[in-house]
């Protein structure tokens, strides 16, 4: 743990703290939060306090972000590994696919995937994916391109190191090199990539849910603000919007600090 940069430790502590707080306050003991909330009742749901809805939403947003971030990192890692192991035309084709996915904004593609997924679910062909699973799958399908490019570049850099050349000269195959020599060096970077995907996934989910396209239940932060945005506009929603904003910012700050520090650490060490 002493080798982990202090910024990364701070970021991870912030993330874990928010996760624990949202679990305890939003899911396990919401009544304790309801009785002490200084922000009063929600304008569109008079039986719930702003604190309950904000922390409940944070828990859902965090869960979506963690699942989608992990899945898109895994897909990106798999694509990068296949690209490097295959090389040549396959690698070029995969890189072009990455560029194509990268070119369109996440929000737009997730909206289209949500429309497709919801229509399939309504017709009973959704493969058992509920709104949560559908959102995670949609975010992973748009979010793998960034990790794939980062992993591919990092693998290419690692492969040029002498110890890899020595292992290759001793007869090590591509899969063996990847598993035994490259993966240990790639692990901290994989954590940094995952942490960098976390806020992107949470923000995309928030925006799509805000539009009312995703049917997230219980509500995420974006859906919470989206379901009552007309009331927020006409009644002045500062006391509702600001807590949700603060929680989103803290989440992104934690993930960004941890991700930047962890991805910079191996470079400094090298």
């Amino acid at each position: 743990m002493s080798r982990v940069p202090s910024r990364a430790r701070f970021g991870l502590a912030l993330l874990i703290g928010l996760g624990v707080l949202s679990l305890v306050a939003g899911r396990l003991f919401p009544e304790a939060l309801a009785s002490t909330c200084p922000l009063g009742m929600d304008p569109t749901r008079p039986d719930r306090t702003v604190c309950e809805l904000a922390f409940g939403g944070l828990w859902v947003s965090l869960a979506v972000g963690l699942a989608a971030g992990a899945l898109s990192t895994l897909i990106g890692l798999a694509v990068a590994a296949v690209a490097r192991l295959s090389g040549g035309t396959v690698e070029q084709a995969l890189l072009r696919a990455v560029d194509a996915v990268f070119a369109l904004p996440d929000v737009l593609v997730v909206m289209v995937l949500q429309l497709a997924g919801q229509s399939l679910s309504d017709a009973g062909a959704g493969g058992g994916l509920g709104p949560f699973g559908l959102m995670v799958a949609s975010l992973a399908l748009v979010g793998w391109a960034g990790p794939a490019r980062m992993f591919r570049n990092r693998l290419a850099t690692l492969e040029s190191q002498e110890y890899v050349a020595a292992a290759r000269a001793l007869g090590g195959g591509g899969v063996h090199l990847l598993r035994v020599h490259l993966w240990p060096a790639l692990r901290p970077f994989a954590l940094a990539v995952f942490l960098s995907r976390l806020p992107a996934a949470i923000l995309t989910e928030s925006t799509v849910s805000f539009f009312g396209i995703a049917r997230m239940e219980p509500m995420s932060l974006g859906r919470y603000l989206g379901t009552s945005y007309a009331a927020l506009i006409y009644e002045g929603g500062g006391r509702v919007v600001l807590p949700a904003w603060a929680l989103l910012v803290l989440l992104v700050l934690g993930a960004s600090l941890a991700s930047q520090a962890l991805s910079a650490a191996p470079r400094r060490a090298a």
């Binding site: 806020p199 805000f210 603000l225 919007v241 904003w245 960004s256």
Partner: peptide, 13 residues
């Protein structure tokens, strides 16, 4: 981080 963590709909709201 604050700017990135602020989806467009927040300042709009």
């Amino acid at each position: 981080a604050v700017a990135f963590g602020t989806p467009v709909f927040i300042p709009a709201l």
